[in-house]
Amino acid sequence: MNGMLLVAGREIRTQVRTKGFFVGLAVTVVLIVGITLAPKLFGGPDSYTIGLVNSQELAVHGGGDTEIEWRTFSDEATARRAVLDGDVDAAMIGGTAGIRVLSDGEIDSELGLMLQAAHREAQIQAAGVRTTPLSMESIGADTRYEETRSQMAFMLVLILFMLVVGTPMMVAMGVVEEKGSRIVEILFTSVRPWQLLGGKVLGLGVVGLINLVVVLAAGLGAAFASGLAVDFPPGMAGIVAGIVVWFVLGYAFFAAVAAALASLVSRQEEVGNVLTPMTMTMFASYGVAFFAAKEPTSLVATIASYVPPFSSMVMPVRATAAATPAWEILLSGALMVVAVAAMVLFAGRVYERAVLRTGARVRLREVVGSR
């Protein structure tokens, strides 16, 4: 065990000391923060300023936290100048023919709809007609957080794809580098094969976990700073914890596969070809997870969330996009744990028997069938 921890420590120190680690992490953080803030930055203004000339304020009801500020002008010319200078978003000009709304270019669609509705309501009340608001009552599932859950799920797909795909690749490249340079032969004099393999997987897993935690913290921090966190669904702590657990399971499975397949070759140029089955599985998992972010209750998403290794990406996305019963998550997790244990044992056997065989590519069936 001490040997495995020593190898893990070496892998962690080697990775976190490189410029590439910090540059890659910084780029990912900027990307996630940008995606998080995009709805706030490009979703239109939260407040409008409207000028008044010979007109009264309207009872405008905006969506969400939209606020209306009113400014009174003495004449139309002054109001026109204020609109063109950008001091007000629009100006309401009263007259015998009714009220005209002036704007610099096409009026903001949201503001136009609010003014039309408020003006209509004012006319109805002036005619002495009493109106009562509609009482909205949902008798189905709670859909208040549906849009937020969907947006979070799409972001999660991107995060898991970058980390679950990228980190096992590092394991594969490390295995081939040690085998091709024959350093592995020297290392085996100090540690056992399972300790070297386990330490490499553990160490690079910690590096991937650091990336995940930093990215999640950056995304959540941006959401709280921008006020978007008020739309978070209940149980966010459980969702975040689940993401971390599913990343660990997915990484462990694919890292074991990467190590086993990479031990079959001795040159870096051959890594891409030998890892083709794994990369195809990863991309298929990504595709299903992307679909699950949009249709979390579909039959495809439900079935895939139970099938390892697809479940490592699909289930956390599905549980984020829609409320999922705890027993389904636990069952999926148990199946994934079994799959990880089986793959780790299989990968350890392949690695131990193939990593010392340099030269031509080793066939997997030869390694598995040998004693």
Rank of each mutant, 00 (worst) to 15 (best):
L158E: 08
V215M: 09
W194S: 15
V171D: 07
P133M: 12
F154H: 11
P168A: 08
S190Q: 15
S226I: 09
V175E: 02
P168S: 06
G174C: 08
D231L: 03
E106G: 09
E177Q: 00
V165P: 01
I159Y: 06
G203H: 03
L197M: 14
V176P: 01
E110Y: 07
G105H: 06
E147P: 08
R149D: 03
L216V: 11
S138M: 11
V207P: 06
Q125M: 00
E146I: 13
S135Y: 08
L209Q: 07
G205T: 14
E121T: 11
E178C: 06
V164Y: 05
T131H: 00
E110H: 09
D231Y: 03
L212C: 02
D231R: 04
I186C: 05
D108G: 02
D142F: 13
A223C: 15
A217E: 04
M169K: 08
G174S: 14
L204C: 13
M155I: 15
E121R: 14
L212M: 09
L216P: 10
L220T: 09
E137N: 05
L196W: 03
L113H: 12
V176S: 00
A223R: 12
R130L: 07
T148R: 15
Q151K: 12
R192L: 11
K179I: 00
E121F: 02
A141D: 10
S226A: 12
Q116R: 10
A222P: 09
V207G: 04
D142Y: 13
R192Y: 10
L158H: 10
A126N: 05
L216Q: 07
A117E: 14
E185R: 08
A126C: 01
V164W: 03
G208I: 05
I186L: 15
G174T: 13
F161M: 13
L111Q: 02
N211H: 15
E177F: 00
G203T: 05
A225W: 11
T189L: 10
E177W: 00
L212N: 04
P133Y: 09
K179P: 02
I139S: 10
A127H: 01
T148S: 15
G208W: 01
S150V: 12
M162S: 03
L197W: 03
L197C: 04
L158I: 15
G219A: 05
P168C: 06
Q195Y: 07
R149E: 03
V176F: 01
G221N: 10
Q116M: 05
V214C: 12
I139G: 06
S150R: 14
E121I: 04
R120G: 13
L102W: 10
M173N: 14
V207W: 03
V171A: 09
L163F: 07
V175N: 01
V165C: 10
S103G: 03
Q125I: 00
L209I: 10
S226D: 12
V157N: 02
A172V: 08
G180Q: 05
Q116F: 04
G221I: 12
P168N: 07
V213R: 05
L196M: 06
L212P: 07
V191K: 08
V176D: 01
V101Y: 01
W194M: 13
G112V: 06
L228G: 06
G112E: 11
V201N: 11
I107R: 04
S181K: 05
G205P: 11
S135C: 04
V184L: 03
